[in-house]
Amino acid sequence: MYITMSDDTPSPSSWSMRGLKRWLSTAPETRDELVRLVHDSRQFLEPDTVDMLEGVLDLPATQVREIMTPRPQVIGLHESTGIDDVMDIILDTTHSRYPVFDSQDDDAVIGILLAKDLIPILVHMLRKEEDKIDSKRLRDLVRQPLYISETARSDTLLRLLQNTQVHMAIVVDEFGNFAGVVTMEDLLEEIVGDIVDEHDDFDEDSDINNIVVHPTKPNTWHVQASTVIEDCNDELGSHFDDTDVDTMGGLVMQALGYVSDLAGESVQIDEWQITVVDVEGRFIHTLELTKTSSEVGIDNSSYE
């Protein structure tokens, strides 16, 4: 026996639309209800769309300090830096914006240098107009900096950047000291995920490469100091406390209690032996984590 569908028989796609209409029939009254509503919408919407909606809703709950580039990782310039040296730095780092610091105070940002503002200088160099190059100071090229607190909400930052039509802000801590920089791209990545441009090294930007298994030592990993503690806990199954600090480098400095002569220093936290293996001045770059417990519970082969 054959069953035929009349023109009035609803199709599977129309069933989905009806389900969506019923799902939307009751408007959410709180932010938590709206978040749950968006999360449950995966049955109707594309995953990427849902991820973006969740990213937008998460902005009010995300502080600037969570998305900024912290001070140790910021590549800046000093107002006394010569134009030739500035050009070398730009060619080496390929950023489009750089904070410029007062020559006498590393906490005082006098402005933001846009790489494109150096184009006239390049033209003068090509024309060998050396007198114009020497008379141009870096201070004359920078733009007025925009400041924001590290505890400010990310949606507040977004409105501020939109209203001022700038793409980088200087982040300050509770004492007014320079804490880092944050850009419009940082905000967009909170919504749409990592953005890799033509200058980025994909391997360097990939979060998975923040934690790399040691090639010879068992139960040992190399971890970038900038790795968020929560990410390290998720990746290695550790239980480091992130109540007072956010990164693995901050955790080690907190445990050691001092910030000088850190190279080679070790500290035992829970069942983990943590050693500083790469440091520049008082800034830690790389750590070595070794699981000292007999019950490791992590398969190194999954990282190879």
Rank of each mutant, 00 (worst) to 15 (best):
T9C: 12
V38G: 01
N163E: 07
N233W: 03
E280I: 09
G111K: 07
D92Y: 05
K116R: 13
K136N: 07
T220L: 14
V56E: 05
E46Q: 13
L45P: 06
K136G: 02
D173L: 03
D231G: 07
S6N: 14
D134K: 15
L138K: 13
M87Q: 12
D231C: 04
I208K: 14
R71D: 01
T183Y: 06
S41D: 00
Y303E: 09
S25E: 04
H222C: 08
G76V: 03
V50Q: 00
E174P: 01
I170N: 12
R42G: 05
E29W: 02
D105K: 12
T30D: 06
R18F: 03
Y303W: 12
Q144T: 12
G55K: 01
K132L: 15
D85Y: 12
T292Y: 00
K116Q: 06
D246W: 07
V267F: 07
G19N: 11
S154E: 02
R71K: 11
R36Q: 09
I211K: 05
L113T: 03
Q162S: 11
D242T: 00
S293W: 07
H95N: 09
E280A: 14
L59K: 06
T286Q: 15
D231V: 00
D84Y: 14
S149A: 10
G250S: 07
H285F: 10
M17H: 10
A225C: 12
L251Y: 05
D117W: 12
E230V: 04
L157R: 10
K132G: 09
H167Y: 07
D205H: 06
I75W: 09
G111W: 03
E129A: 14
D270G: 01
Y303K: 13
D105S: 11
N177W: 09
S13V: 11
V192I: 02
D84S: 15
D131Y: 15
G19D: 04
L141D: 05
N210C: 02
I75F: 07
E46D: 14
E280Q: 10
Q43P: 01
Y98C: 03
M68F: 03
P120L: 12
S6C: 04
